[in-house]
Design a binder for these strands. Structure first.
Lengths: 141, 141
DNA sequence: TATTGTTATACTCTATAACTATA
DNA sequence: TATAGTTATAGAGTATAACAATA
């Protein structure tokens, strides 16, 4: 490998795996936006429309519509915010939570199919790499 | 770290970095579809509309339109296929190639910003990991 | 007939601007 | 006034169906 190959290899790997992960969203008939918003709710719990929009990097009107459509499909529930009469709180329904967890499980299984075929030395190397990358991420944010 | 943490860590890393790479496409005012199609042309050279559509996972009419719009913006060039009167060959223009290479460079720089802060042991581990993952990919396809 | 590319049309996701209700 | 959410409207990207030209 030449000098810049670490970055190039990681770039190609992220591109390739990222594409396959998005195919899983599509296979469940869900847009990436829906899956992303639902994953956010699964991790952070209840959130209001504006904050959801900010976290997901879309406009508030777009999130209003996304939430409305997901509510129609029984994936999330809207409720008034007791602390702010203007606010609307969004939470996953049981159905929504089950779906997002199923998709996440499938994505992790896809990655596990890669990882599990690595030999022990490579797995140790991967663990060390991820610990370092994770440390960098958390230090930065 | 617990038993399944390797896969989970890799999943979260791919999600996070993938999102940041897509932000770079957006910063250049290009859709992911355009960047992906242009990257394909940069790597594989000239290709016809149908094969481009197949490789990018979109319908042929969608690729017809994508190519037409990119041609309007001077990013690609359409030309008749001498070997098949029905075919249309698509190639990057000089402008298109420069742009796709600039974006790729910026993406790799983003990843390099991570990799370059790893200590030597972690970099060796990353290199080993990527070599193994790459070997798995090429063996599979 | 089968295939390549295109046109016609419609649906989804997104955005900006204008509006309503509450702080 | 400022903010949270919505509605109105428009643009980009995608798909399927129907069509033209060539194999």
């Amino acid at each position: 490998m030449k000098g810049r190959s670490d970055e190039l290899g990681l770039y190609l790997f992220v591109q390739h795996v990222g594409r396959r992960l998005r195919h899983i969203d599509a296979a469940y008939g869900l847009s990436s936006s829906r899956v992303s918003a639902m994953a956010h709710l699964a991790f952070h719990g209840v959130d209001n429309v504006g904050q959801l929009a900010a976290h997901e990097g879309v406009s508030r009107p777009s999130m209003t519509r996304l939430v409305r459509d997901m509510e129609s499909d029984g994936l999330v529930r809207r409720s008034p915010d007791a602390n702010d009469g203007r606010g609307v709180l969004v939470a996953l329904t049981k159905k929504g939570r089950a779906l997002v967890e199923k998709i996440r499980t499938e994505k992790i299984a896809l990655i596990a199919a890669h990882v599990n075929t690595l030999d022990p030395a490579a797995r140790r190397a991967l663990r060390l790499t991820l610990e370092n990358l994770h440390a960098l991420e958390t230090a930065k944010n």
